[in-house]
Simulated scan of single mutants.
Amino acid sequence: MIGNDIIDLQFALSESIVLQQRRLDKICTVAEQRYIRESENPWQTFWLIWTRKEACYKAFQRLHYIHSFCPHQIENQIDTSGMLLPLILFRNKKFFARTTMNQVKIDTVCASSQALLTDITTVSDLKEILQLTDFKKDNNGIPYLQARNIKQQFPVSKSSHGAYKAYALFKADIANLDATALIYA
């Protein structure tokens, strides 16, 4: 399904322990640790890996609810030349990630297929969308948007960190909401 994560890099500066070996062993696979150590900016690369794991976990949650986050079981795929691939494996399931990164934040979205990944968009504010929907969570705490005029739910993934917030949703769902608004206007 769909998941996302965002990291405010300025806010993350307070997390100085992220590169301690004990912490890396709990969170990262051996290949991910090597990728982090060999990168130009290990600290930022750690957060890149982290956002991909968190986004993958959220996408997995929608398909197979699990109560605990187990980042060591989420494996970012790295090719033989040392390039981070869009593919992530978690409990024998494939997920695909797309990350945007700049000097202030890292924003990752993840989906259970490449086709779904291309249909995901992120927004920092749901103000316009909330005119047509209500933001709700199911019994497991997984968020969704409930359309007001029709009995339809739309998956949404929410992430916030420091000064940044991001909602990931499907472009097709936004178009469907826009069409619904026209029908019931």
Rank of each mutant, 00 (worst) to 15 (best):
Q61C: 07
K53D: 03
S124K: 06
I7Y: 04
I49H: 08
K136C: 13
D138M: 03
L24V: 10
E75H: 07
A179W: 09
N41M: 03
I7N: 02
H64K: 13
Y65K: 07
D79A: 09
V30R: 12
K158P: 02
A12T: 12
N102R: 06
I183A: 07
T122A: 09
I142P: 00
L116D: 08
N4E: 00
A163F: 11
Q21A: 11
W50I: 10
N140C: 05
V123P: 00
I120N: 00
D134F: 07
I88N: 00
S160C: 13
V109L: 04
Q10L: 04
G162C: 04
S124Q: 14
I27N: 10
A166D: 02
Y35W: 13
Q153D: 02
V156Q: 01
F96S: 03
V123Y: 09
Y35I: 07
K53H: 14
N41E: 15
G3P: 01
Y184M: 14
Q103Y: 11
L145P: 00
Q153F: 02
C110D: 03
A163Q: 15
V109F: 07
K26A: 09
A181N: 12
P42G: 09
R91D: 13
L177G: 03
I120G: 02
G162L: 08
K105S: 10
I183W: 09
L85V: 00
I7W: 04
C70H: 06
R91Q: 12
G82R: 07
K165V: 15
D138Q: 08
L24N: 09
T122C: 10
V123Q: 10
N176L: 15
I2F: 09
Q114H: 05
L132V: 03
A147G: 03
A31D: 15
N176H: 13
R52M: 11
Q77T: 08
L116A: 08
K151I: 08
Q114R: 09
Y184R: 10
F154Q: 04
L182P: 01
A31L: 10
G162P: 09
Y164V: 07
D5Y: 02
F170P: 04
N176E: 13
S124M: 07
I150H: 11
A55E: 00
A185I: 09
Q20L: 06
R52V: 01
A185D: 11
I106E: 06
K165I: 14
Q146L: 12
D107L: 14
I66L: 02
T118C: 11
R98I: 00
Y167V: 11
D25K: 15
R62N: 06
R91T: 06
I66N: 08
Q33W: 12
K151F: 12
L9A: 03
T180D: 12
P42T: 12
D138L: 01
T180G: 06
A172W: 11
I150L: 11
L19G: 14
N92S: 15
I120P: 00
I174Q: 08
C28H: 07
R148K: 15
C28M: 13
Q77H: 01
D134C: 07
Q77P: 04
S81I: 13
I2Q: 03
I74S: 06
S159G: 06
S39E: 10
T99W: 07
L126K: 06
T80V: 14
Y144V: 03
L130W: 05
D119K: 05
L84G: 05
F46N: 05
V18I: 15
F46A: 04
S16R: 14
P71K: 09
N4M: 01
A147V: 11
N41I: 15
Q152S: 10
